[in-house]
Structures are given as structure tokens and as C-alpha cells.
Amino acid sequence: MEPTTLILLLFIFILSAFLGFELISKVPSQLHTPLMSGSNAISGITIVGALLAIIQSNDSQFAGWLGFAALILASINVVGGYMVTDRMLGMFRKKEAKKD
């Protein structure tokens, strides 16, 4: 990897870190669990890495199978994570609708 590319990626990483620190400074405690669960689903973004590993499997058969395993695992994380978060938050909303 080119040094300039590396610097650029590090730059993006550092800025994202600061953004992440600022994003959730004030969150009511009842949203902590959904927030953890929802951000956990986002960390399933590694699914993109799994797809790329499969796509490049012409280079290496074994790497392709590893990518396939990663794809299954990441899909569990993504689909399960978003759905369970939605279920949790749906319960909060049901109650608000009742109040109206």
C-alpha cells in the first residue's frame, strides 16, 4: 500500500474516532441497550470484507471458503442485530402510541 494511501486511511480513522466520541455523549439510559445492539449491527459492516474475499477467490480457493464462512457470520450479525434492535425499540413505541 502506498504511504499516501496509508496516511489518508489513518486520517479517516482518527476523524471517525472523534466523531464517534461526540455522537453519543448524551443518551438516556433506557436507550443504552438498543444503542449497543444497533451499533453492534453496524460493526457487521465487515460483511463487505467477506464479500470481497469471496469475489477475489480466483486467487485462492481456500481464501474463498474463509470468505464464505465470514459472510455467514457477518450476515448473522447484521440481520440479527438490526432485527433485535427494531424489536426492542418497537416496544418503546407501542407504549407511546397508547399514550396518545
Binding site: 500500500m1 471517525s16 466523531l19 460493526s43 459492516i45 470481497l52
Partner: peptide, 29 residues
């Protein structure tokens, strides 16, 4: 952070950003 590191491995911005956001906000939590 693991996803973000994987982003560095394959040189993919969206992994780096999304993974790092989770890493930082998770640490705050």
C-alpha cells in the same frame, strides 16, 4: 475496531469509518 482494522487490511473506507464509529461510541458507553 476489528471491523475497522479489517478495513485497513482491504483498504476499504466504509469499513474503517463504520467500524471506528462503533469502536469510539462503544468505548464512551
Amino acid at each position: 475496531l476489528a471491523a475497522s482494522a479489517a478495513g485497513f487490511v482491504i483498504g476499504n473506507n466504509v469499513l474503517i469509518v463504520a467500524g471506528c464509529l462503533v469502536g469510539a461510541s462503544g468505548l464512551i458507553l
